[in-house]
């Protein structure tokens, strides 16, 4: 069973996209922990640690990814959670994709991504334990 945490860091108040992803992953046979809006990096990484998820899927629409994502990745490393796959979605300008990947994010999914592609990507990159 693949476990995923879908998290919304920062202050933007829109979680329609995150909910669509959560539902698509559930329909893809995954267990999805959803933590709601306005999460701090500390809250997100702590939840990922306690829930022992295989994948952390971040949704950021506010433009705050250049500060939020490096902080999250720093906490991930501090907690030795390097075996967790981190994905980023939302509104990420093209020029920002490479710097995001540099922090350790495995893949950035932009607006209009087919949810099936995300499900397939996770299946290909996470070992199912069962």
């Amino acid at each position: 069973m693949i476990r995923v945490l879908v998290a919304k860091p920062g202050l933007d108040g829109h979680d329609r996209g995150a909910k669509v992803i959560a539902r698509a992953l559930r329909d893809g046979g995954m267990e999805v922990v959803y933590t709601g809006l306005h999460q701090t990096p500390e809250q997100i990484v702590d939840a990922a640690l306690q829930e022992d998820v295989d994948v952390l899927a971040l949704s950021i629409l506010s433009g705050a990814h250049p500060t939020l994502v490096p902080r999250i990745m720093e906490l991930v490393k501090q907690n030795h959670m390097d075996d967790m796959l981190v994905l980023l979605g939302g509104i990420i300008p093209d020029d920002d994709v490479e710097p995001m990947l540099q922090t350790g994010v495995a893949r950035v999914f932009g607006p209009g991504t087919d949810t099936k592609d995300i499900v397939d990507y996770i299946r290909e990159h996470v070992r199912d334990h069962d």
Binding site: A22, R26, D27, V32, V33, Y34, G36, Q43, D46
Partner: peptide, 22 residues
Amino acid sequence: PSSPFSGGAILGDRIRMQDSVM
């Protein structure tokens, strides 16, 4: 509950437990 169709699940209890889980 897990979905009887896909076997997946949405686990949303943390949303209402923000204060304590922090």
